[in-house]
Design a protein around this nucleic acid. Structure first.
Lengths: 206, 206
DNA sequence: TTCGAAGTGGTACTGAGTACCAAGTGAGCA
DNA sequence: TGCTCACTTGGTACTCAGTACCACTTCGAA
């Protein structure tokens, strides 16, 4: 008789193994697709082609990635929780805007670790409207995680969830982040990511 | 011999007539589609169905609207130039953030004129990720018109177009606008659109 | 009346994404 | 070694958005 206990005990190690191979597969397919997108454009690349080059079937491709764009966007997929964690570690009496600025250090650190990949990412997202739209959807997910944390720090006389201020604050911060990243990708690297982000987020206080 | 002069003189009145019928057709199809979307959801409504109910063919539908979502988003399609015009009319020594807040009065006025339609619009955009993505694309168009105007008012020591601040400012303002509109659509109308927008855009100065 | 430009509908196509089914694979067990 | 079962994979077929092309109609101008 199979019990919940059995399932957990026996499956946990196996699932973990499978998960590792799954992640490896995702990484490889993602690399192939990113190269193809950069070479010939997202719109001129079909899922069929990606699957063929990566050595799997179209069907299996869609088991790994929900959409064609996800194959690139998977990179920053689980950034939301990381950002939320970084935010909660900021001092409670710090201005939320400053905390958000420091929270984004997580992202700039990732970018600094893989400058070439992050540049390729930004160029792809910047060049393709569909890609940018999907990226914005992911970012809305980040925002939803941050909004309640900001709301807890922002006093309001409106009932919880009815004050637009927390969402406005978070969404604005992300908008500044995007403006800075775009400027960095478009620029000639004479100005650092951090400086650009500082400039983008400085405006409310000037 | 047909000259450029002939073409302009002769075509202008006819184009204007055609344009009027075209606008009427667009309005009617848009109304039908909006009703269907509200009744059964965007994803459960096919272009075929919209075309059938509106009395035109699928082919012609796509001659009027580039995408299925455009049939709803056409409402605010030409808002960008109106916003840009409103911004330029603000005093040059006013803080750009304040000017942007006042620029959005154009939008709240439109909403006040058609409260039921704007509410339907906001609910549709809020409920459907694809719709929201397309709407954001349109808004990026607005932003592109406003960015140079803001940049002209914002002193910068960086070469033109390389400073992320103007885009950050404009994109943040639009983000605040969206947060306020969402809060208004979600709320019980006890707080006015203008008050919500004020609260959403007040944060940088608090 | 004729001509030409523009609008319309039909057909066929590509490509993303989904549903379903059959075959392969691999670990655990007798 | 052979069996079983869960999981993965690939193939086929489908829906639907969006595009391209073609034939037909319409309507204003000469």
């Amino acid at each position: 008789m199979s019990t919940e206990y059995d399932r957990v005990v026996k499956d946990t190690p196996r699932t973990s193994l499978r998960e590792r191979t799954r992640q490896a597969m995702r990484a490889e397919v993602s690399a192939v697709a990113t190269r193809l997108f950069a070479e010939q454009g997202c719109d001129n690349t079909t899922v069929e082609q990606i699957a063929a080059e990566a050595g799997l079937s179209r069907t299996t491709f869609f088991r790994y990635f929900g959409t064609k764009e996800d194959v690139v966007l998977t990179w920053l997929e689980d950034l939301g929780p990381a950002l939320a964690a970084a935010f909660t570690e900021r001092p409670a009496d710090e201005h939320p805007w400053t905390s958000l600025r420091r929270t984004f250090d997580v992202l700039t650190a990732i970018n600094a670790d893989n400058p070439e990949r992050s540049l390729a990412f930004l160029r792809l997202v910047g060049a393709n409207p569909t890609m940018r739209a999907r990226h914005r959807e992911k970012q809305e997910g980040w925002e939803s995680l941050l909004v309640p944390l900001v709301a807890a720090r922002l006093p309001s006389d409106l009932p919880a969830g009815h004050d637009p201020a927390p969402r406005a604050l978070v969404a604005s911060a992300v908008a500044c982040l995007n403006a800075a990243m775009q400027a960095w990708a478009d620029g000639d690297a004479t100005v650092s990511r951090d400086t650009l982000l500082d400039r983008a987020m400085r405006f409310p206080f000037t």
